[in-house]
Design a protein around this nucleic acid. Structure first.
Lengths: 147, 147
DNA sequence: CAAGATTTGGCAATGGTTTTCATCTCAGAC
DNA sequence: GTCTGAGATGAAAACCATTGCCAAATCTTG
């Protein structure tokens, strides 16, 4: 209350061994975003929102989130890493709009099956896959028909 | 006509408008590699092989090769760009060994179909996809069973 | 052989990500 | 409440792949 509100409501997340305000803030920001963001953008957002947090911590936390399975990661065409909160335990794939940047999760059951089959027929083990889909969403297609 | 021919001994490749020794060297090195390489590694290889060529030229040529459809590109987990010669016109997908780095092309017909279907059902247009498969190849699995 | 245009490649600049390390914070002990 | 040590933070520097810049080298044509 009157003291520094360390804001530790209910289920705190201890990503690096100890739950901290910064980690909770980053996770919350990622959840609110509901879409892929770069560490840089997320940092800028938090700063301009008045939250004092270092870029290093953002990177550390995001990396920990990915390792903990709480976030998905992908790379945009320029090689920048993007992160997105992942509610469930199983990994997802997304279709991302090249114009507005929005992304929607897609059903990837077929891909999973396909990947498994490839693994079997090739003799490879521990096969992991990354699928990145990009396109122009309906809205953006209408806005610029003659792209 | 040996005169009108734009200096093409045996099918020279003119990526930037004019066929040059460096461009041919880079392309040949990429073909010989038969697998994904980074620009840096390709450069190191050529240098240690006695070929004098600048890193800048490697990048320029590789980029041109990709644009010309003669090379595939992907990013390794660290975000570095990798290039691989592509004999055919249609694009391929590869399964890459995380241990030895070798990669093999895989049949991706199902993925193509899947991607198209996603595009249709989502309302997105101009959907492009990138698929990256990694695993441990049979040889490496035997070498280190308890990985 | 000279003029003009294109390519090359060393070097500096860019920019995202990681490392370093001194400082700060919190949980538990006293 | 205070002390204390392990762990977390973050500003700045280090990294490193990639790109931009531009003078020198090379090829084409007249």
């Amino acid at each position: 209350m009157t003291s520094t509100d360390t804001t530790s409501p209910q289920g705190e997340v201890a990503l690096l061994g100890r739950p901290t305000r910064q980690q909770a803030t980053v996770l919350q920001a990622l959840i609110d975003r509901e879409d892929f963001v770069s560490a840089q953008v997320l940092h800028a957002r938090l700063i301009s929102a008045g939250t004092r947090v270092g870029l290093t911590t953002i990177y550390r936390t995001l990396t920990a989130l990915v390792e903990a399975g709480l976030a998905d990661t992908m790379r945009d065409p320029e090689g920048e890493r993007l992160f997105r909160h992942q509610p469930g335990p199983d990994h997802r794939h997304y279709l991302r709009c090249r114009t507005c940047g929005r992304s929607v999760p897609v059903d990837s059951g077929l891909v999973e099956t396909w990947a498994d089959r490839i693994a079997t027929s090739s003799g490879f083990t521990q096969v992991a896959h990354t699928v990145e889909l990009t396109g122009i969403c309906a809205d953006c297609t209408q806005s610029a028909p003659t792209a």
